[in-house]
């Protein structure tokens, strides 16, 4: 009896049920109507290609040509590293670092305008009627952030290369713009969820907007924002690698070049170098984030 009643009264949400149904339907129709032919993989030609690729193409050239045995592998890797490898890895890393810093600075400038509790004529004084002027400020800042993060890094880079030509700037700007959108959104959410007492106390004792933001809010949100910052930096390293596919001299550039010259052995090596770089980046970021979480207790 009570069990039946419990079952009847269990929490339900039509919204969730409909959404679940919709996503299920979406997955089903995509698999059924998509032009996914398994013959792409099982046809005679592709099996032959795959065979050649695995047993011939990706074996380092000196070994494939029978000039040397597998003991020549380290010297071959060393040769590629000395020629372009180190430079490519370095470029990838530096691009990601400059980009994420630009992104953080840009986001820090937009957050006060995008968070509803700072962008108001009475900041932190609870929900008063926001004036039309402040509403439009919030709308503009959020619109800009949505616009920046709605376009993927790769497409930003593609568009910017068309305009700025090929140098490191399009890569840096593309990564910076997209991540500014993401960091700005996360920052605005963090600021909106802050406990209000500290900024309110500062405001009441006569601090200006800028003072409240610099000395009340910034220290409070910093620990969490640093965690987000390092998390986004990891993705920056990833994306900086592939933006090179468009012609900027990060790892991706050497990957396309190897591809164009049918040097699949070098292609594979560059991909592995990229994955080593990403692993190193993830490792550093994980350590820093762990330290941050342990030293900085939640604000409040």
């Amino acid at each position: 009896m009570t069990l039946a009643k419990l079952h009847r009264d269990r929490p339900r949400s039509w919204f969730l049920i409909v959404s679940a149904g919709f996503f299920l339907l979406l997955v089903l129709t995509s698999w059924l109507t998509g032009d996914f032919k398994l013959s792409d993989f099982t046809s005679e030609r592709s099996v032959r290609n795959l065979n050649r690729f695995l047993n011939h193409d990706i074996i380092p050239r000196p070994i494939r040509d029978g000039e040397a045995g597998w003991e020549a592998l380290p010297s071959w890797v060393g040769g590629v590293l000395a020629r372009d490898g180190w430079k490519a890895m370095g470029n990838t890393l530096w691009i990601s670092i400059v980009a994420i810093l630009f992104a953080a600075i840009g986001a820090a400038c937009l957050v006060p305008g995008a968070a509803r509790n700072t962008a108001s004529s009475h900041p932190f004084m609870g929900r008063t009627h926001p004036s039309k002027r402040w509403q439009s400020v919030v709308f503009l800042c959020r619109g800009l952030l949505v616009f920046c993060r709605g376009i993927p890094e790769f497409i930003w880079a593609f568009l910017l290369i068309g305009i700025l030509g090929i140098n490191a700037w399009p890569a840096v700007l593309a990564l910076a713009l997209h991540n500014m959108g993401i960091l700005g959104r996360l920052g605005a959410e963090t600021v909106e969820n802050l406990p209000l007492d500290i900024p309110r106390a500062l405001r009441i004792s006569g601090a200006s907007r800028r003072q409240v933001f610099l000395f009340g809010i910034f220290p409070l949100v910093l620990p969490r924002m640093l965690v987000y910052f390092f998390y986004r930096w990891e993705t920056c390293v990833r994306e900086a690698t592939v933006i090179g596919l468009l012609g900027i001299s990060s790892l991706g550039y050497y990957i396309t070049e190897a591809h164009a010259r049918f040097k699949y052995d070098e292609l594979l090596l560059y991909i592995l170098l990229g994955s080593a770089l990403i692993l190193a980046g993830d490792f550093v970021s994980a350590i820093v984030r762990k330290c941050l979480r342990e030293t900085d207790v939640e604000p409040g």
Partner: peptide
């Protein structure tokens, strides 16, 4: 550790 575009490559 390998980006999807590189898997695609």
């Amino acid at each position: 550790s390998v980006h999807e575009l590189l898997w695609a490559t």
